[in-house]
Amino acid sequence: MGELEQDFLQALQSFYYDGKAIMSNEEFDNLKEELMWEGSSVVMLSSDEQKFLEASMAYVSGKPILTDQEYDELKLRLKTEGSDIVVEGPRCSLRTRKVYSDLSVDYLKMLLLNVPATVVALAAFFFLDDLTGFEITYLLELPEPFSFIFTWFAAVPVIVYLAQALTKLIIKDVLILKGPCPNCGTENLSFFGTILSISNGGSTNNIKCSNCGTPLVYDSKSRLITLPEGSNA
């Protein structure tokens, strides 16, 4: 389904950004219907996403419905909300004369940050079970529906809460952003946040592409990757 969703987004972006159709209306409708049957959330656009696509199409046709500032604010808000509609690949801005790419949140990597704390929380849970003479195990083995209620409305929430609390003690204001290098297209990651009271330094990170070595500037506020002044793509 991921490939179908990517085809759907590429078709939308090509039509609204470039004014070109990469598939017929019938092919697009069939693709959209298939994704809807698969339960994909990509085909269900919010009002802001619809407004953004309409503004993009109006701009391409030479009849903008939003100012540059309103358009940029809407795009940034959608980026912050994790919308895939606004994420584009490497390109060059005619206004700023800079090469840049859009950043998106790597939710999988952020979720994996909770794994160590989850292991600790589970260990504490089983240790407490041992101290109480396996009273917790007894509750887990109660006849249904009592076992189900205790497991999913007591044990699991406590473990999740403890894991999140432990993670926040070590890592605060965490944000992991990913995006393609404007020079070679290789995806790179950058971490923003505080680990054990040591901050990464602010809203921008300077890294080098893992593939071509090009210096990159990651900006967590604008959600953009840009090349430093003087760099050539």
Rank of each mutant, 00 (worst) to 15 (best):
K221A: 13
T96F: 15
I207C: 02
L227S: 03
I65F: 02
G2L: 06
L142V: 05
D173E: 13
S199F: 06
G213R: 09
Y16F: 15
Q164Y: 07
S190H: 00
L66K: 12
S190I: 15
P90D: 08
E81A: 11
D68T: 15
E88D: 07
S220E: 12
I207E: 01
G82T: 13
E26N: 14
M23D: 06
L45C: 08
K20P: 03
M110N: 08
V60K: 03
G179W: 00
L111G: 14
V43D: 10
S190G: 12
V160G: 05
L177G: 03
Q10E: 15
I159M: 03
A154H: 04
Y218Q: 02
Q13G: 10
V120L: 15
G19N: 07
V174E: 07
I149M: 15
L196M: 07
V160T: 14
K178S: 03
E135Y: 02
K79V: 04
D72V: 05
L9R: 13
I149D: 02
A165I: 15
A233M: 07
D29F: 00
P215G: 08
Q13L: 00
T186Q: 05
N200A: 14
L166F: 08
R97E: 06
E70W: 10
L139D: 04
G185E: 05
V105W: 09
S147N: 11
W37P: 02
E54V: 15
M110K: 14
F150D: 15
A58T: 10
R91A: 09
Q50K: 01
I207G: 04
E187P: 00
E49K: 03
Q69S: 03
F126A: 14
A121W: 09
S40W: 06
G62C: 04
V115T: 11
K172C: 13
S231L: 05
D102W: 09
F28L: 14
P64R: 02
V156G: 02
T194W: 04
R223S: 13
P90Q: 04
I195G: 14
N183E: 03
L169W: 14
K75M: 13
G82N: 15
S147W: 01
V43W: 05
G2V: 09
L9Q: 03
S83V: 12
E81K: 14
E34Y: 06
R95Q: 06
L166Y: 02
D130M: 13
Y100N: 00
E49H: 02
G62A: 02
S147P: 03
E5T: 09
G230W: 00
F28D: 09
K221D: 10
V115L: 05
A55L: 14
E49C: 02
K221Q: 14
F15Q: 00
E3R: 05
Q164K: 06
P157H: 11
F126K: 11
I159L: 06
R95I: 15
S222M: 06
T204H: 01
V120Y: 14
T132G: 09
I149H: 12
L142F: 09
L45T: 07
E73M: 12
A58Q: 07
L140M: 04
G2E: 14
T67W: 03
E73Q: 13
N188F: 02
L78M: 11
E70I: 08
L189Q: 10
D129E: 05
N25A: 11
E27T: 01
F148P: 00
S83W: 13
L139A: 09
N205S: 08
T96L: 13
F126S: 05
G133A: 04
L4Q: 05
L108P: 03
